[in-house]
Design a protein around this nucleic acid. Structure first.
Lengths: 227, 227
DNA sequence: CTGCATTGGAGTACACGTGCACAAGCGCCT
DNA sequence: AGGCGCTTGTGCACGTGTACTCCAATGCAG
């Protein structure tokens, strides 16, 4: 939704709204594959992810004509195609800056490695944390914040995760970009400024709750009126 | 975007897209207030949150005509109005189910209490974790999962947070709703099914990264073509 | 091999959200 | 007291995304 117009590649033009849904399809397909399903109809898959079947078909048709009429989509094949489109078939090294509670949660989150994301660096300024080994599978050692540029350069990191307090976020963001990172995942509760060409996605945990509170308040208001 | 049409209240009709931006405005205004600003123009505030000034003004005008022409918006006053609209002026008790890394991160997240959210229950099935005291300010004790219904009922909890593994999420969700919860914040990587009238917001950490990977792959593809 | 039922894919109409531009209103300065 | 400049608020047109409908392709059964 941010994403300046110029950024939108004209090559195959997949709408942003569709891109946002592709990972959801991917997730649902993985679940189906684990359950042993070989084929799935647009109707079934749509129900599983909570969209209409028409939307699902339109989304998938943007990627190509995978799927056979009269039968549906072959789970494995579709899964591969979506993975390829999302870039999940290749290896994405990433760094996480800030090893607080959230940083640890991210480092321990199992859903990364299975999707091609590999944590190659954990960085924190606190000397007490530096040296600590974190992560369930790959034991990654926390390194001092000063080595940020080294880690990024050595491993060719293109994606950086900011899990620092708000006051440190912008500085970290600038350093990441200067070192060569071009996609930022920001968990700090502020809008980070980036030069054009750099993608940012922000997730603010408190922000999501506020949206829920808004709807909840509306529900309460309506009930009062009704009574 | 999910949200069935019938759900959209006709009372004052604030578009969903605007609701999603209000917390961002709120956040920026808090930062401005801390910096000592008394008034702010739509241009300034828009720049701070990364939207156009027209969009910002239109959003704010939906709430009412706060702000004086020729001057701008009074920070404190606008902050109060947005807070009220979002329901941040009242107290929202909430429970967090699943005290893993993410659950801890949420429990320790400082941004909740200042926005009216109060964690009244931490629940986990693991006996080793039960009894542990978590949280920086309010020391909340982890209680066994069986007491979910008790906690929800006693404190009148309307908002529930699911921070469990995927396989446990749907069952927890059902129990929360049965106990009286009407808004679900879901961090488990799956789409939870809920009856109509219940709001759900899902945040999948891995999902966001996949969107970034998609854009990054597009950038790489374009560079290859160019060279 | 033929007919039928099923299902993906394309085309179309509509609604929502966005950006632009202008008018209305407030405060300040002369 | 009056005009001038600044900023808000809003009507309108545009583009994007979504929902709906139709059609043809395809597998399966007889």
């Amino acid at each position: 939704m941010p994403l300046p117009r110029s950024e939108r590649t004209a090559t195959t033009a997949v709408p942003e709204a569709t891109v946002a849904r592709l990972p959801v399809y991917h997730r649902a397909l993985v679940a189906l594959a684990e359950r042993g399903a070989t084929t799935v109809s647009s109707e079934e898959l749509a129900a599983a992810v909570g969209v209409t079947s028409a939307k699902l078909r339109k989304d998938l048709s943007l990627l190509g004509s995978y799927g056979t009429r009269g039968v549906g989509y072959e789970v494995d094949y579709l899964l591969y195609q979506i993975s390829r489109e999302l870039g999940l078939t290749q290896d994405w090294p990433l760094v996480i800056v800030g090893v607080g509670n959230l940083g640890r949660a991210l480092a321990n989150y199992g859903g990364f490695s299975s999707r091609g994301f590999r944590i190659v660096g954990l960085l924190d300024p606190d000397p007490e944390i530096v040296g600590e080994k974190i992560g369930a599978d790959f034991l990654v050692e926390v390194r001092p914040l000063d080595e940020l540029e080294d880690v990024v350069t050595e491993a060719g990191v293109l994606i950086g995760v900011i899990a620092t307090p708000a006051h440190a976020a912008q500085a970290v963001c600038d350093r990441l970009i200067a070192a060569g990172v071009r996609s930022i995942m920001n968990f700090a509760p502020l809008v980070v400024a980036v030069p054009p060409g750099v993608s940012v996605r922000s997730v603010d945990l408190g922000l999501e709750l506020q949206v829920l509170a808004f709807h909840e308040q509306r529900k309460l208001g309506r009930e009062e009126v009704r009574s």
